[in-house]
């Protein structure tokens, strides 16, 4: 089984967001970058699918500048076999990035193509499904269960008030949600092995697309609230506020 994992490099979820002078991007000074947390579920899924199949190849594919290679090596350290770095600047238009990825994935013989559900920076939540459409392949998004047997996949995904079940033939694209698995940590041996694994660099140039970022701003601060009181004795006062002032009950 040949499995691709498409990876994004994102600021650590604990990072404090500061807007850069341009007003359209964040100030990256002092920000630690990590593999997108949802992509770690994809990496783990790839590794465990390969282990289960008893063979095959896992490839991490990432679009971005030089810095993305460090993130890719985290995937290699976790156990992914090799990397393909699509070297270029991602477009603000997710469809353009999907086109670049699809171009690379097309005809490369992948049985399974995995993405994270979304990247925690731009929260675009579209690349995986777009790549599948462009490749005319089946796609299930935000899967929390993925079983593969005899060239077919059965999946589960959370929908409001239930678990949706679906199935498709391979090759197929899946985007991975929390709950699918528990990603392993890269072992120390894995970290040492990662730098010896092949990492192929291909220049790409995503198109400008149809999306322009006009502004990036911090959300308005919530007005300071108040402590209504202490203990159960404060409940009547709280109820009064919720019914008459806030009018939510």
């Amino acid at each position: 089984m040949k499995i691709a994992v498409c990876l994004r490099r994102v600021p650590d979820t604990t990072a404090k967001i500061v807007i850069a002078g341009s007003g359209t991007v964040i100030d990256e000074t002092g920000v630690k970058f990590v593999p997108n947390p949802y992509d770690e579920y994809a990496i783990e899924a790839a590794l465990s699918l390969k282990e289960k199949a008893g063979g095959g190849e896992t490839v991490v594919v990432a679009l971005g500048g030089d810095a993305v290679q460090e993130t890719m090596r985290t995937a290699l350290a976790m156990g992914i076999d090799r990397g393909v770095h699509l070297h270029g600047t991602p477009s603000p238009d997710g469809l353009e990035n999907a086109r670049v990825l699809a171009e690379h994935l097309r005809g490369a013989g992948y049985d399974v193509m995995l993405f994270g559900k979304f990247a925690v920076d731009d929260c675009g939540q579209q690349t995986g499904a777009m790549v599948a459409e462009l490749l005319e392949l089946p796609c299930a998004t935000a899967v929390t269960k993925l079983d593969i047997a005899a060239g077919r996949a059965t999946v589960e995904r959370e929908v409001e008030g239930g678990i949706e079940q679906a199935a498709c033939a391979l090759p197929a694209v899946f985007t991975c949600d929390k709950g699918l698995n528990n990603p392993r940590l890269p072992s120390l041996k894995g970290i040492m092995a990662a730098k010896k694994k092949p990492l192929e660099v291909t220049p790409v140039a995503p198109g400008a697309g149809s999306v322009t970022v006009a502004a990036l701003a911090l959300p308005p601060e919530r007005a300071a609230g108040r402590i209504v009181g202490e203990g159960a004795a404060a409940v009547p006062a709280l109820m009064q506020l919720l019914t008459t002032e806030a009018k939510v009950i």
């Binding site: 997710g94 469809l95 579209q126 995986g128 777009m130 790549v131 459409e133 929908v159 999306v211």
Partner: peptide, 23 residues
């Protein structure tokens, strides 16, 4: 932008070659 809507939107966008904005 429900689980279903978020699944559907990028598929439509890719089919018609349009940008997609989520959430």
């Amino acid at each position: 932008a429900t689980a279903t809507g978020k699944d559907l939107a990028p598929r439509i966008a890719a089919r018609i070659g349009a940008p997609c904005a989520m959430d």
